[in-house]
């Protein structure tokens, strides 16, 4: 039954994609648009095959930036959330930093990060980490703080210490909330990485797109864009599947 339903939904996605691509092709053909304005999907596909070596190389760089950025952002978010939970007075000091990290647009600090961390992969990792830091921290903190008080009361009567409560009750209880933070993070982390590449880099899909754009190779730009979208989508669905597997009791 579920298999059949999965086939059905996959079929729907395929049909939607075909229709969009078909429309795109028709628009290009009817209006006779030159390929430097809007390349036809077939041209993009051709480019995708033709330049696969270059694309693969840059995809690997961007992919590494995104994944490492996610890892760094998650660790930072968890760390901050724990600090705020465990040391209540610290929260008043940390919260402004947290909000400021969101108030300053990540594009605006990108040039500074380039100067500090160089044009390599490090500055992009930090960009991705900064952009996901806020959703991860707030979700984790909310999850930890909103542990049902009944759970905590129960284990208090069992003689659980503060650390035991955190480890055995508050942390697992916060996982479903944290998972929604991670889902958001996975979607927006690529934005940080690519924005970093636009500001200054020598490799990565963002760099490739910028170069292709400057040289009017719009079909290559679309090819890079396509890979980036597929990568982001795949990342999201894999993460979602994994989270559902690890946290089967979550409501989502």
């Amino acid at each position: 039954m579920t298999n059949k339903m999965r086939c059905k939904s996959l079929f729907k996605v395929a049909v939607t994609l075909c229709v969009i691509l078909g429309l795109w092709q028709v628009v290009v053909m009817v209006f006779a648009l030159p390929s430097f304005i809007l390349p036809a999907p077939l041209e993009v596909f051709e480019k995708l095959v033709q330049r696969r070596d270059v694309l693969l190389k840059h995809t690997l760089v961007t992919g590494a930036e995104i994944l490492l950025g996610l890892l760094l952002g998650l660790c930072m978010g968890l760390f901050f959330a724990l600090q705020m939970l465990l040391f209540k007075p610290l929260k008043r000091w940390l919260l402004p930093i947290l909000i400021a990290s969101q108030a300053i647009p990540v594009f605006a600090i990108a040039p500074v990060l380039m100067i500090w961390l160089g044009y390599g992969i490090a500055s992009k990792i930090v960009m991705a980490a900064i952009i996901i830091f806020f959703p991860v921290t707030t979700c984790c903190y909310d999850g930890l703080r909103n542990t049902p008080s009944g759970y905590l009361d129960l284990v208090k009567t069992m003689g659980a210490s503060k650390w035991q409560r955190l480890r055995h009750i508050q942390f697992p209880a916060s996982l479903p909330t944290l998972a929604s933070g991670i889902r958001v993070a996975v979607v927006i982390a690529p934005i940080g990485a690519v924005a970093g590449e636009w500001v200054g880099s020598s490799e990565g899909l963002g760099y490739l797109m910028l170069q292709a754009n400057a040289r009017m190779m719009i079909d290559e730009m679309f090819a890079a864009l396509f890979i980036l979208s597929v990568f982001s989508l795949a990342l999201y669905f894999i993460t979602d599947k994994l989270l559902k597997k690890i946290i089967p009791w979550g409501v989502l």
Partner: peptide, 17 residues
């Protein structure tokens, strides 16, 4: 606890104190 099996829920108190 929704993340623990029935058996582990029964065993919960053995983790503390």
């Amino acid at each position: 606890m929704p993340w623990l099996s029935v058996l582990d829920n029964v065993l919960l108190s053995t983790r503390f104190g």
